[in-house]
Simulated assay, not measured.
Amino acid sequence: MASPVISHDPLYRLLRDGQVDTFNQRVAAGEVADLTGCDFRHMNLQGLVVDKLDLSDAYFRQADLRGIDFRRCRSLEGASIHGAKISGAYFPKALSAEEIELSLTHGTRMRYDETGV
């Protein structure tokens, strides 16, 4: 597993600068963001719309993810949410509560349930 990346993607840079609303507007207008494996450590991402975004292998250590609906993101496989604020967040059904809790408390990379339950 590679280390988290601080990407040069212009949309990712908006998130690093705290411009979540601008990011959402640009993605809604059709721009494509490459966020796989990105470092979101300590970032406030409240209000982020993640529909159809691929967040696989992303690193959300101690990020503020409160209220984000991850159910329609393309993937959170391999992401880590160690110490993140997740109150009110929705996660994909393919991620078990145990996977989410292990990632939150121990920093493990989340794995999707292959049975589809």
Rank of each mutant, 00 (worst) to 15 (best):
N24R: 04
M43K: 08
L45P: 05
D57A: 14
M1D: 13
G78D: 12
E101A: 14
A2C: 03
G67N: 07
G107M: 06
P92Q: 01
N44T: 09
D17F: 07
S7G: 06
V32R: 14
V117H: 14
A28L: 08
G88D: 07
A94M: 08
G107A: 08
R13Y: 04
R41E: 03
D64Y: 10
G30R: 05
G107Q: 07
R111F: 10
G88R: 03
S80L: 00
S56E: 06
F60H: 03
V27Q: 04
G37M: 07
V117R: 15
C38D: 06
K93P: 05
S96M: 04
L45Q: 03
T108E: 08
S56T: 14
I81Y: 02
E77N: 11
R13T: 11
Q25W: 05
S3M: 10
E31Q: 15
L11E: 01
F70E: 09
K85G: 13
G116I: 09
A94T: 14
L11Q: 02
L55H: 09
T22S: 12
M110N: 08
G83E: 05
G88T: 06
R16P: 00
L76C: 01
D69T: 05
D9S: 04
A79F: 00
C73I: 02
I100C: 06
D54Q: 11
Y59Q: 05
L65F: 13
G30E: 07
R13L: 14
L48I: 09
L76A: 02
P4Q: 06
Q19M: 12
V32F: 10
